[in-house]
Design a protein around this nucleic acid. Structure first.
Length: 273
DNA sequence: CCATATACCTGGCAGC
DNA sequence: TGCTGCCAGGTATATG
């Protein structure tokens, strides 16, 4: 579920509902996430007011002034807003209560993480955040920047796009989708891609991510009661998960292959050198 | 430094 | 029905 668009939709879903509210309590259940979940977290948060909800890559940062709750949803995590007292289901690991509402972390595979960081310094220099790449929806992410950043790299462009040390937020789905929109073969060595092609790729990445955010945004009403997944965007996939199905543009069968242990999907006709 | 493989964890599904 | 193997949207870490 959670690549940049899903995390951003989650941010937009919870921020207007919870910013300005004070934590009244909470519960931790399974401590065993990717990093140990502090059992005393509810006690640490109690009485603190949520000041802002920010996003950096696929991380959510809940700013409580005296500290920041850093949340990563891993492969299968989601946050839901529920009425206080809603019975927990399997894999509900953390509740943070804000009066009569609660924010609940659900994560079956437990690749997610929740960390409490207490100093601004620590946030900037935290090992999980310090080496993150550029934000693809911000101004600095330009064709020229990406061109320069990939010179000398032999890695296939698909795998580089998924490397959060270069550019954050692009996961397996949106890497394939963006390359399709840019009509670039996912196997192409990044360092051999000319500027002209990055002039297609950068807008393609932006358009793909923004369309997914919009699709999720259109279901924000549902988010309050559900899980923040931008389910509607799946109907817009051009290649992801469509092996053997006809390309929406040229009709040729979509192919799949494996790159770095991950599935890649592409159109053999539209995405040619 | 670079590129690739591995590990973490659970659930759903195809195939037998 | 139940078993087995494989797959899944992430990423730090280990290994060449």
């Amino acid at each position: 579920m959670p690549e940049l668009p899903e995390v951003e939709v989650t941010r937009r879903g919870i921020a207007p509902e919870l910013v300005g509210l004070r934590v009244s309590g909470g519960v931790t259940r399974t401590p065993r996430l990717r990093y140990p979940l502090l059992p005393e977290l509810p006690r640490l948060l109690k009485g603190k007011t949520l000041l802002a909800v920010r996003r950096r890559g696929k991380y959510l940062l809940l700013d409580f002034g005296a500290g920041t709750l850093l949340i990563h949803l891993g492969m299968s995590g989601s946050l839901r807003l529920l009425p206080r007292g809603a019975p927990p289901q399997k894999h509900d690991h953390l509740d943070v209560e804000f009066g009569d509402r609660l924010l609940r972390l659900h994560d079956p595979r437990r690749f997610g993480a929740v960390l409490w960081l207490t100093e601004e310094q620590e946030i900037q220099h935290h090992p999980l955040l310090a080496n993150l790449g550029i934000e693809p929806l911000e101004e600095g992410f330009t064709p020229g920047w990406l061109h320069a950043a990939t010179r000398g790299k032999n890695t296939p462009i698909k795998q580089l796009l998924m490397d959060g040390h270069l550019v954050v937020g692009i996961g397996n789905i949106y890497a394939s989708e963006s390359l399709y929109r840019a009509r670039i073969d996912p196997r192409t060595a990044a360092g051999r891609i000319a500027l002209k092609r990055f002039e297609r790729l950068v807008p393609a990445i932006r358009a793909t991510l923004e369309a997914a955010i919009d699709a999720g945004g259109s279901s924000l009403r549902d988010f309050i009661a559900s899980d923040g997944s931008s389910g509607y965007f799946q109907q817009q996939y051009f290649v992801y998960g469509r092996t053997g199905e006809p390309c929406r543009v040229c009709g040729k069968a979509i192919l799949s292959l494996r790159q770095g242990q991950r599935a890649t999907f592409y159109c053999p006709k539209c995405q040619r050198p």
